[in-house]
Amino acid sequence: MAREHLPVELTSRVLHAAESGYYAWQDRPPSNRLVKHAWPTEAIVGIHTASRGTYGSRRVHAEPRLDVSIHVSHDTVELLMQCAGPHGLPGNRPPAPST
């Protein structure tokens, strides 16, 4: 809300939520899951960047086990990639038309 410069009072009234809930959320420390996913997310984004943005979740999942040695499931890699934003290129390009 603050990022969009919306007043907390108005937003809480529209959403039928208490203002105190927003301020409690704002002051809360990061969750255990967020802390646990921070390092793998950095490694995943680094691997995706090193592949020049071509690797999808399958290849990114295979890569850490070879080099970086982080142990996360394929589903976790997929989730972290969706949250962080990188996307792989679509696979199996059609053959170039012959002229």
Score class of each variant (00 low, 15 high):
Ser20Ile: 11
Pro97Gly: 13
Val14Asn: 05
Gly53Asn: 03
Thr99Trp: 06
Thr99Tyr: 03
Pro29Gln: 10
Pro30Val: 03
Arg65Asp: 04
Gly46Asn: 06
Glu63Pro: 00
Pro95Cys: 10
Thr41His: 01
Pro40Asn: 03
Gly85Asn: 12
Pro29His: 04
Ala96Ser: 15
Gly85Met: 07
Arg33Gln: 06
Val60His: 00
Thr54Gln: 06
Ala62Arg: 02
Pro64Ser: 07
Glu78Tyr: 13
Thr76His: 01
Thr41Pro: 06
Arg93Ala: 15
Ser98Glu: 12
Gly21Ala: 09
Arg59Asn: 07
Leu15Arg: 08
Val60Thr: 09
Pro40Leu: 03
Lys36Glu: 05
Leu34His: 06
Glu63Trp: 00
Ala38Thr: 08
His61Val: 06
Gly46Pro: 00
Ser20Val: 11
Gly21Trp: 01
Pro7Asn: 09
Gly88Leu: 06
Pro30Asp: 10
Pro95Asp: 14
Ser98His: 10
Lys36Trp: 02
Ile47Pro: 00
Arg93Cys: 12
Thr99Val: 15
Thr54Tyr: 00
Leu34Trp: 05
Ile44Lys: 02
Ser57Val: 09
Ala17Asn: 05
Met81Ala: 12
Ala38Gln: 12
Ala17Met: 09
Val77Asp: 07
Arg58Ala: 08
Ala62Ser: 00
Thr41Tyr: 00
Leu15Val: 08
Gln82Asp: 14
Arg52Glu: 11
Glu9Trp: 05
Ala18Val: 07
Gly85Ile: 04
Ala38Glu: 15
Leu10His: 11
Leu34Glu: 12
Tyr55His: 05
Pro94Gly: 09
His16Lys: 13
Leu10Ser: 13
Lys36Thr: 06
His71Arg: 11
Gly91Tyr: 09
Leu79His: 03
Val35Pro: 01
Tyr55Pro: 01
His48Gln: 06
Val8Met: 05
Ser57Gly: 08
Ile70Thr: 03
Trp25Asp: 07
Gly21Gln: 10
Val60Gly: 00
Ile47Gly: 00
Glu42Ser: 09
Ala2Cys: 08
Cys83Ser: 13
Arg13Cys: 12
Val35Cys: 03
Val35Gly: 00
His61Glu: 01
Ser51Met: 08
Gln82Pro: 04
Ser69Pro: 02
Ser69Gly: 08
Ala62Tyr: 03
Arg59Gln: 10
Asp67Arg: 07
Gly56Trp: 01
Lys36Ala: 15
Pro90Ile: 11
Val8Ala: 03
Pro95Ser: 14
Thr41Arg: 02
Arg93Leu: 15
Glu4Tyr: 04
Leu6Asp: 11
Leu89Val: 15
Gly53Thr: 04
Ile70Leu: 13
Leu6Met: 14
Cys83Arg: 13
Asp67Ile: 09
Ser73Tyr: 11
Pro64Gly: 04
Pro29Tyr: 01
Val14Leu: 15
Ala96Val: 13
Ile47Glu: 02
Leu6Ala: 13
Trp25Pro: 13
Asp27Phe: 02
Val35Trp: 00
Arg59Cys: 02
Ser31Val: 05
Ser57Arg: 02
Ala50Pro: 01
Arg3Gln: 13
Thr54Phe: 00
Arg58Asn: 08
Gln82Gly: 10
Pro29Asp: 09
Asn32Ala: 10
Asp27Asn: 10
Asp75Lys: 11
Tyr23Phe: 14
Leu10Glu: 15
Leu10Thr: 14
Leu66Lys: 09
Val14Lys: 07
Gly88Met: 07
